[in-house]
Design a protein around this nucleic acid. Structure first.
Length: 290
DNA sequence: CGATCAATAT
DNA sequence: AATATTGATC
C-alpha cells in the first residue's frame, strides 16, 4: 500500500555540515529535576482517540499539489506548509503552558493539552524555544529595574513582542524562583460576556497578523506521529488586501467539536464566528470556504 | 529509545 | 524573522 507515513522525511534533505560546533550542554547542571509525570493530562477521560471529529479528511487536492516530489503519492505525501502561529494558536499555547506550569511544560505535554489538530511536537518545541527567550528577555528587563540602557530592545524584538503580546503572560512566569506549581487545573470560569474591550483589541491585533498569506494544514497527530491527510494551502484573497476586515473566508483556524479538549481556555474568537454550533477544538484545517 | 534542549539551517 | 531541522544529551 502506497501509504507513506513519514513525518520526518518530507524530502531528502542534504545535511550541510558546516563548522558545526555545538557546545556541550551544561554538564554540571541538572535543570531537569522533574522528569515528567507519566501522564500529566488534565482531569478528563483519556481518549486516545484523537479529535477526529467528523470529517477530518480534507482530501482536498490543490492544483498545485501536482508538483509533488518523488512522484509517488503526490496528494498525500507530507509536505506540510510552515505553521503560522496566529494569536489564537499562541493563546492556546500560553494557556497550556500556564496550566501545566513552567516546569512541566514540555513540548509533548503542551501539544496534547492544546489539542490542535495537525500540530506536531516539533511545531510546539520550536515555538516554545522562542517563547522562552521572550520570557527571559522580559525577566531581564523587569529585574533590571527598567533603567535606561538596561534593555536593548531592537526593532526585531518589537515584532515578536506583538505576537506574544496578543496573549497575556501569566504573572508568575516572569518571576524567578520556585513558581509554577503543578496546579491541577486553574479555576477558570467560562465567561461568556466579559469586557468587550479586550476582544476588540485582540481583534485588531489579529488583523495585523492576518496579513501573512499562508495558512495551511496538516493531518492528525494522533498516535504520536500520524499524519495523513491533506492540507490545503490557501492564500488569503489578496485582491486588495487592504481592508480585510472580514474575518472570514481565509481563516485557517476552525473549531470542531471534540471530546474534551479545550476545557480550560476561553477561546474567545473575536472574528471567527462560523455560526455553526458548538465547537471546542482548534484545528489548522481550512474552513473549506472562500 | 524517546523526549527535550539548544544550536543551526532554510 | 519565523519555523524547521539537526545533533547531542537526558
Amino acid at each position: 500500500m502506497p501509504f507513506v507515513a513519514d513525518p520526518h522525511h518530507p524530502q531528502p534533505r542534504r545535511r550541510l555540515q558546516h563548522t558545526r560546533r555545538r557546545r556541550p550542554r551544561r554538564p554540571t547542571e541538572n535543570p531537569r529535576t522533574s522528569p515528567l509525570p507519566p501522564t500529566p493530562r488534565p482531569p478528563g477521560p483519556p481518549s486516545p482517540t484523537p479529535p477526529t471529529p467528523s470529517d477530518l479528511e480534507p482530501s482536498d487536492l490543490n492544483s498545485d499539489s501536482a508538483a509533488a516530489p518523488g512522484g509517488d503519492e503526490p496528494a498525500r505525501t507530507l509536505k506540510r506548509p510552515r505553521l503560522v502561529w496566529t494569536p489564537q494558536l499562541h493563546k492556546r499555547f500560553v494557556d497550556a503552558v500556564a496550566h501545566l506550569g513552567i516546569k512541566n511544560a514540555v513540548p509533548k505535554t503542551i501539544m496534547q493539552l492544546m489539542s490542535v489538530d495537525g500540530l506536531t511536537r516539533e511545531n510546539v518545541a520550536s515555538h516554545l524555544q522562542k517563547y522562552r527567550l521572550y520570557l527571559k528577555r522580559m525577566q531581564g528587563l523587569a529585574t533590571s529595574g527598567g533603567g535606561a540602557g538596561s534593555g536593548p530592545i531592537s526593532a526585531a524584538d518589537a515584532a515578536t513582542d506583538q505576537l506574544f503580546a496578543s496573549a497575556p503572560v501569566p504573572h508568575h512566569f516572569l518571576s524567578r524562583g520556585p513558581v509554577a506549581g503543578p496546579e491541577p487545573f486553574p479555576p477558570y470560569v467560562p465567561m461568556p460576556a466579559l469586557q468587550h474591550h479586550q476582544q476588540i483589541a485582540a481583534a485588531m491585533q489579529q488583523q495585523q497578523y492576518y496579513h501573512q498569506r499562508h495558512l495551511g494544514h496538516f493531518g492528525s497527530p494522533t498516535g504520536g506521529r500520524g499524519f495523513d491527510q491533506g492540507f490545503l494551502n490557501r492564500a488569503v484573497p489578496q485582491s486588495g488586501m487592504h481592508q480585510m476586515l472580514a474575518p472570514a473566508p481565509g481563516m485557517g483556524l476552525m473549531q470542531l467539536s471534540s471530546p474534551r479538549a479545550a476545557s480550560f481556555v476561553d477561546d474567545s474568537e473575536p472574528a471567527g464566528r462560523e455560526g455553526s454550533g458548538e465547537r471546542k477544538v482548534l484545528t489548522l484545517f481550512p474552513t473549506g470556504e472562500d
